[in-house]
């Protein structure tokens, strides 16, 4: 088990190294950070002096090594705009994004498993056929359109749910601002979560259905029928457990991808999360913040995939993470 985590830790370091290198190398193409940093009145000589002082004129490798040296100590540089450590700025926005991803994940699990299983067991029913048709539509509608549609229906026409922001938040443990503990915060979470889930939900329904249909054809399911055990046990233990193996693998990758999709959702709903922050940072050419964001997202990817591997190991007995015999 320890060996597994050590291996994962080094993988994470490599992933973050590569991500930082890539994000660092694109910064020159984003524009001039000084345009946002200083006002119109500053002369070209002063700008040059400032560039020299900030080390922006140094060769790429010199700049990167300087950054990397500080990064290994946890210092990802200061945000040009916020004039605060970039890492700190990101971490302050992280809870909002993670709660949004969490909300969307809950929705996906809650809907995709029952719908996928039902439509695999009854592939000919009108319900399954409708779901299959709708899922194609769902996959093809872009996130921002879903968001606008939901806002129009539930916020404007029906007036049930708020259309932007996080609502009331509560501070837990000093650093985590959560919206999950108040009714207002939860209400604000509903529309953005459904929007974020809208892309992945049809995909998961189809995936679960396809996997389940294949498993239901297998010999061991047929043998389970021949043993005379209850249909419920066959569907939800024998078949579902095998169905979930590939779904968990895909799910892990998709949760990471959802963190990236939050950029769109957060923008439409003015959700004060990392994605929204990232978009602002790109507009302001706030390079340290961009780099920090990408590294944090990379870290989230590695962490979720590690968790997924752990869960997979629990479900699949042929995988032996702990190295036990």
């Amino acid at each position: 088990m320890i060996a597994f985590f050590v291996k994962r830790f080094f993988q994470a370091v490599v992933v973050m190294f590569v991500i930082s290198l890539i994000s660092f190398s694109i910064q020159d193409n984003l524009g001039d950070p000084l345009r946002e940093l200083v006002g119109q009145a500053v002369s070209e000589e002063e700008r040059q002096a400032l560039r020299e002082e900030m080390g922006l004129n140094d060769p790429f490798l010199v700049q990167y090594v300087r950054f990397a040296k500080k990064a290994v100590q946890g210092d990802l540089g200061n945000s040009y705009f916020f004039k605060k450590p970039a890492f700190e700025v990101i971490m302050k926005k992280l809870p909002a994004t993670l709660e949004l991803v969490f909300g969307a994940t809950i929705i996906i699990v809650l809907f995709s498993v029952p719908i996928g299983v039902y439509s695999a067991i009854n592939p000919q029913s009108w319900f399954s056929k409708t779901v299959m048709g709708l899922s194609i539509v769902g996959i093809s509608i872009p996130v921002f359109l879903t968001a606008i549609g939901l806002i129009y229906l539930f916020a404007i026409e029906l007036g049930w749910l708020p259309s932007y922001g996080r609502g009331d938040t509560t501070n837990v443990m000093g650093f985590w601002e959560t919206g999950l503990l108040s009714a207002d915060g939860l209400k604000h979470l509903i529309l953005p979560s459904f929007t974020l889930a809208s892309i992945m939900l049809p995909l998961f329904i189809r995936l679960i259905r396809a996997e389940m249909m294949e498993v239901l054809q297998s010999e061991y399911v047929k043998f389970a029928w021949a043993k005379g055990i209850s249909p419920r046990r066959i569907y939800f233990l024998h078949a579902l457990k095998n169905t979930m193996l590939p779904v968990i693998t895909v799910g892990g990758v998709q949760i990471g991808t959802m963190v990236a999709y939050t950029i769109l959702t957060e923008t439409v709903f003015q959700w004060p999360g990392m994605g929204f922050l990232f978009l602002e940072a790109v507009n302001r050419v706030d390079t340290p913040l961009i780099v920090a964001y990408l590294i944090v997202v990379g870290a989230i990817f590695v962490v979720t995939n590690t968790l997924v591997d752990l869960i997979y190991g629990l479900v699949n007995p042929t995988v032996n993470l702990a190295g036990k015999k």
Binding site: Y220, K222, F223, L237, N242, V315
Partner: peptide
């Protein structure tokens, strides 16, 4: 059944 490799559920 014919093939014992396929008859038993691999995850139980």
């Amino acid at each position: 059944f014919q093939d014992p490799m396929m008859t038993l559920n691999p995850v139980l």
